[in-house]
Design a protein around this nucleic acid. Sequence first.
DNA 1: AAAGACAATTTTTTT
DNA 2: AATTGTCTTT
Length: 737
Amino acid sequence: MSYLESLNESQFDAVTAPLGPVRVLAGAGSGKTRVLVSRIAWLLNTEQCRAHSILAVTFTNKAAFEMKVRLQDLIQTSLKGLWMGTFHSLCHRLLRMHWQEAKLPQNFQILDSDDQTRLCRRIIREAGVDEKTIQPRELANYISGHKEEGRRAHHLEFYDQHEAQLIELYKLYQTACETAGLVDFSEILLRSLELLRDNSAILEHYQERFQFILVDEFQDTNSVQYAWLKLLARKHERLFVVGDDDQSIYGWRGAKIENILNFDRDFPETTTVRLEQNYRSTQAILSAANAVIAKNSERLPKKLWTDNESDQLLVGYRATDGYDEARFVVETIQDLLKKEEGVRKSDIAILYRSNAQSRLFEEFLMRKQIPYRVYGGLRFFDRAEIKDILSYFRLIVNPKDDVSIERAMTTPPKGIGQATINRIREFATTHGASLWDSANMMLESQALPTRTHNVLLSFVTQINEMKALTENDLALPDLFSEIIERSQLKPHYKKEPLGRGEDRIDNLNELITAAEYFTNGEKVELAFIEEEIDPLSLPLYEQLEAFLGQTSLNSSENQAEIDEDSVQLMTLHASKGLEFPYVFMVGLEDGLFPSDNSLSERRIEEERRLAYVGITRAEKKLFLTSAESRMIYGKTLYLPVSRFVRDIPPELVELEGPGIRVTPTSVNSNSNHAFNTPRTDGIEGFNLGDLVEHPKFGEGVIQNFEGSGPSTRVVINFSNGGRKVLVLSFAKLTKLD
DNA sequence: AAAGACAATTTTTTT
DNA sequence: AATTGTCTTT
């Protein structure tokens, strides 16, 4: 077993750990995936367990795919029967296979977050609640938040009127989902947990089957996911979890870092293995990462080290503004590509806190004609035009889908407006029927005004005819293009200004290509069947069902991209698990990263972990950039260098460019370490981010300090929207808390 | 009912 | 700044 020989000591210990509960604390770049894959290979080779008995959970679909490939490289036996995927895809499969026990209709569809928010808006309006007291997104977050903790509406108690309303709306929302046959993301998990919990036969079957359960990125599991794992693993307790508490960055999505911190409490027999040798980064990068993460209190002790030598320092650059920052980054990239031997564009990554920040870099890269690829952001299946056409498809598969029908009825405009929809909805509520059934009943009763009757009739006919198409002997892509034509969406988009419509039409065509890829491509794993299957062997209608099932959970990395060698742009979150020789972390300013919200809500530890993730992506060289001024929401802000950068020992960082810059707004100069431009430690009792009150301007938050001594000035953003630079000693500021 | 002008608001992160 | 929703007009 040659793959065991190339492991270091702790990796070997992890791979060959006893079969009971195992927790592997894997620092960044310590060979985590390798251990996980080797463990599975080891199980298959030595324990003679079949792939059939293994359940492996990954964080993304992409990770699952890559892991399968790597695994297949290590072993000779077949992987048939192995369950590997994300929590969502595995739970989705369970629900498809046991839809009756899960009390779902066979053709249930998945509601993505956008659909969920739309549905929430509708529920709020319908309940006669003011959208300003409860915003759709607030309700959606409330519902998801509770579902992630395993709480249904009837579990909840209220302490005030507002929450009472939320609970009421949660109930209404759930009823709406049930009648429409819709399941949101967190519902997939919760429903699946309840399925196992309430059906002992099913539970025992899977407990018996999955003797070995392995989980990647365990630090990012939420309560329901952990409960699901515990339930499945209860019998054999052969639960092998891998993770790094320092890289837990999805707390906002319900992830519980406690899951990994307290794993040994839930499973007293736990063997814990620490992987502390880093194979990825230079010592300088690692030292920087350690310095940043050391400030966190809630973490398991561990010390990353490396044999790699530290030949290069980190590079810091303080730009004047966002443009200057982008210029610096892109010019540096040009230099790298030109001067350094064998540097490929895909060796270079630009990492930022939020998607919106990619724009400037894209602009400059385009100008210099450097190919790039942006990950994340608006995904293909999230695009409006794709959702528009998919609403027709979904309606064909599940006429009860009230979310899709409304979209299909109104896009493109076909004479059915708000008034008509309200009418149908009213009918639907009183009769407890779906919108589709209601529309049909109303047509039959002839109770509608002629004009309304006619437009509604032609809509219903249109959908029925589309549905009839699925009974023909068509290929899936042909069905797609036929329905796209009939939907009249193309002429509708054509009317949009600025060639935007052209893009949309391109995307529709792209969808046809996706259908071709789906049918001609590899065999696919279908949610409702255990084996891989050739989609073409299915009847057309089921092909469509299968396609929809695949897209809803696979929306991110599905699209075939141009294989061109390109610079990689992504958010820090999206970079987790990846590595690049050259990494640019940009927008490193307090207020951007860490973001304003996390500063006020004390979520700073998670932001710090995010910084740690970013830093540890770099193999050879790490560039840290920030800008003195930046446009945010159309306003120019002057933000200080990120506290995370300031946590890095100055001797690790080499400064490029002018370093300290003397500008009209910044005459700061108390040391030649350019990163200390603004001081953040208290000045006369005031700190960055403090909430203060000014007798004339009211309340505001301290953004920056400028200058020193008696002329020290303070930059404040007031809550009335104004921004002022005041001389600290004159401004009569009171600190609020 | 649909198109256009206007105002408001922002997710930071994603299965 | 730019998108999204709301209000107004046709």
